[in-house]
Design a protein around this nucleic acid. Structure first.
Lengths: 126, 126
DNA sequence: TGTCATTGAATGACGTGTCATATAGATTGA
DNA sequence: TCAATCTATATGACACGTCATTCAATGACA
């Protein structure tokens, strides 16, 4: 029994999906092309860049992103391999790690962020 | 130079991401558990179910979903393997295919749709 | 009619996300 | 202090999406 409310919900959902995928794809392509970095990689960089405190952060990162813990771990792998970030063990809890931007990471982030914000504006705030 | 407008954009984007991922994951888990079918599979079923006309539809499907053409093709593979849908060749253009729900597909869809709408309501319309 | 470009769909190689699990360090309580 | 348990992260198997390519059918035009 498809009520009109059901149809509205489905419409709303599809519209969310479309705008989400369109903007995500646009940003991903642009970052990939200009900075050789994926959207998820950038988002982690972005989170690291905005954490000025030096708390143990792998864990905290997982709470600020819809990514899985293991996804975050692998994204960080790639960032580290690319020399943009480094894992530093915490002295107060040696299970934990916190992340630091390397100089290259900081440089790339500040350029990529401009692109990122511009595309968000273009896609969200039309 | 992080303007406050930039921060708002980023906030807005993260909130979209979060609500998108949370609802998608909730629906996916529920459908998987109760009907052994993923979210993308359901969405294709749903599109097929709502196309009453018998136009050649693989193509049309691609236009109604953010999925790639090849993704659609593979989702349909799975639906076909599960006996929920069948591919029928078009007589007017033999490159094209249109899709039909099998009886099992129709039955599963009508049950799953109830669950789907309920979860949308729960997650979108708070 | 014969060639060339185009279109609808399928496929294989590959990257990345997820789940379940492993590992090492921390904490609790007897 | 020593188990038992819990917590932070890493890892391997696997599923799925994407890109590039392929194949067959169509259309266009000489």
């Amino acid at each position: 029994m498809a009520t009109t409310q059901d149809r509205q919900l489905v419409e709303q959902w599809r519209s969310i999906q479309n705008s989400y995928f369109r903007t995500a794809a646009a940003i991903d392509r642009a970052l990939e092309a200009k900075f050789d970095i994926g959207l998820n990689e950038f988002e982690i960089l972005d989170l690291v860049a905005e954490s000025v405190d030096s708390a143990c952060r792998m864990k905290a990162l997982g709470e600020r992103t819809p990514m899985t813990q293991s996804a975050v771990s692998k994204v960080v792998d790639r960032l580290e391999k690319a020399g943009l970030v480094s894992r530093v063990t915490c002295t107060d809890d040696r299970r934990s790690l916190y992340l630091e931007l390397t100089d290259a990471g900081r440089a790339l982030h500040s350029d990529a962020a401009v692109e990122h914000r511009a595309l968000l504006k273009e896609n969200l705030g039309e």
